[in-house]
Nucleic acid binder design. Structure first.
Length: 425
RNA sequence: GGAGAGAUGGCCGAGUGGUCGAAGGCGCACGCCUGGAAAGUGUGUAAUCGCCAAAAGCGGUUCAUGGGUUCGAAUCCCAUUCUCUCCGCCA
């Protein structure tokens, strides 16, 4: 959520910058300015009325103590009028604040100056490519066939236990999951991230804090009996740790990493996108989160991108780093880099990580602030996060690209974690 | 799940209808003292919104959360959440 102050002070800039996201903000901004104006004048009236009531109440106290009953009664009569006004004004104020918030949450985050213009995925900019493309012959199998052949991931069994999108990992398949989780976590810890193991269900407040609620509730599994939500990403509980928190500037950068299963309903998905491991309802992901001083958040973003790149390189996967254009960016992001790895048998790029700087957009909703030496007023921090990494598509690419006639070769960086270097029949 | 007790500022803790944004202490900041430090001592020490160009200042709100009673609520009433104790159940 953008701050009202920013919209009030730089309305034209907000409108022009949101054009990069193909978002026409003019109508909403003018509505916000009007509502905000009205809100402020209503509050002034209300404050004055409340102040008068407070004064009278104090006088009544004094009069009663002095045994001046009649004068006290007289003043009580005046309060009847005041209280009616207060009820009316505070009702109006509440309505205006509600309206203002509803308008404000409709505005996406401003794209940073590094965001390329464009309508959709085809306009994204490929910043870097790396790794070697696999040399596979024509008979190379997609990962869902390999998973079956080596009996390491059982999609049918998942259907039986739960439903589509909940695979069962078996034997070396299960061990590979565990190895990847540990590999990612250990690499993150080595880079200075503090490991967090959060709850997998969150309450409504947390859902609002990171913006899944109220709009995107259809993407989350809802535990209705206790009104909890299964987390769609570790970003939700980890970022909410800092909801309503005022940090000390000396604590920057805050760096957290967390492994969690992620649960997503993925309503509306279909076709080849959901084949095999490409899109699941439950999957494993290791997340990195940073909270940083506004002056340094782009340095942090850069370091996160470098870090994730290091992981993909160690896994010897062909990858590319994509800078998302305005039209393809998420609502909340100011700048996003997607990591894609190439799955050799499907012959397509799979998104395995998305690293974003949200600047103060998320922090405003969370009320995540910091205080600087010599500056009494708390100000909003910048938040960033990224996957490092999401497992299923990494596994898909590993299986497909590393298939040989002997079996599936495990990249050497991972062998200390798996304890084996090949998956055979 | 049942019964009871509780939730106050960064922390501890007093406060049961008006003079309470809240005693006292700890912590923290700045000063005095000191050769320097400790001890001692003095002062200060929340967030948020509005008025104001801004600062200062003034005003509103906030004692878990949401309602209510009252001229007036940290204090009384109701609901919710959380914590603790006992009982039950349990990896």
């Amino acid at each position: 959520m953008l701050t009202i102050n920013l919209i009030r002070e730089k309305a034209d800039e907000v409108i022009s910058r949101l054009k990069v996201k193909n978002f026409d903000a003019a109508a909403i901004v003018s509505e916000i300015l009007k509502t905000d104006e009205e809100r402020r004048s209503t509050q002034t009236k209300l404050d004055n009325t409340l102040a008068e009531l407070n004064t009278i109440s104090k006088e009544i106290g004094t009069l009663i103590r002095e045994n001046k009953k009649e004068e006290a009664e007289e003043r009580k009569n005046r309060t009847v009028v005041l209280k009616n006004n207060i009820a009316e004004l505070s009702g109006l104020l509440e309505k205006l604040e509600f309206a203002l918030r509803n308008l404000a949450v409709k505005l996406p985050n401003l794209p940073s100056k590094y965001v390329p213009e464009g309508k959709g995925a085809e306009d994204n900019v490929i910043d870097r490519e790396g790794g070697n493309m696999p040399q596979l012959d024509e008979k190379a199998l997609p990962h869902w066939d390999l998973a079956k052949m080596y009996d390491i991931i059982d999609f049918d069994l998942g259907n039986k236990l739960t439903g589509a999108g909940f695979p069962v990992y078996k034997g070396k398949g299960a061990k590979l999951q565990r190895a990847l989780i540990n590999f990612f976590l250990e690499e993150n810890i080595r880079a200075g991230y503090v490991e967090i193991m959060p709850p997998l269900m969150v309450n409504e407040d947390s859902g609002f804090g990171t913006g899944q609620l109220p709009d995107k509730d259809a993407q989350m599994y809802h535990v209705t009996i206790d009104n909890f939500y299964l987390i769609p990403t570790a970003e939700v509980p980890v970022t909410n740790i800092y909801r309503d928190v005022i940090l000390d500037a000396a604590q920057f950068p805050v760096k957290n990493t967390a492994y969690t299963p992620c649960f997503r309903r993925e309503a509306g998905s279909y076709g080849k996108d959901v084949r095999g491991l490409n899109r699941l309802h439950q999957f494993d992901k290791v997340e990195i989160v940073q909270i940083q001083h506004p002056d340094k958040s782009y340095e942090s973003l850069e370091s996160m991108v470098k870090h994730v790149e290091g992981l993909v390189r160690k896994l010897e996967l062909p990858y590319r780093i994509v800078r998302l254009c305005g039209g393809d960016m998420s609502f909340t992001s100011a700048l996003t880099f997607d990591f894609e790895v190439f799955a050799g048998a499907q012959k397509r790029w799979l998104e395995v990580s998305s690293v974003s700087n949200f600047e103060s957009f998320q922090a405003n909703r969370l009320k995540l602030r910091f205080r600087e030496d010599g500056n009494k007023k708390p100000q909003l921090a910048h938040t960033l996060n990224g996957s490092s990494l999401a497992l299923p598509r990494i596994v898909a690419a590993l299986l497909e690209n590393n298939q040989t006639s002997q079996g599936i070769r495990i990249p050497s960086a991972l062998v200390p974690y798996t304890g084996f270097d090949i998956i055979e029949k």
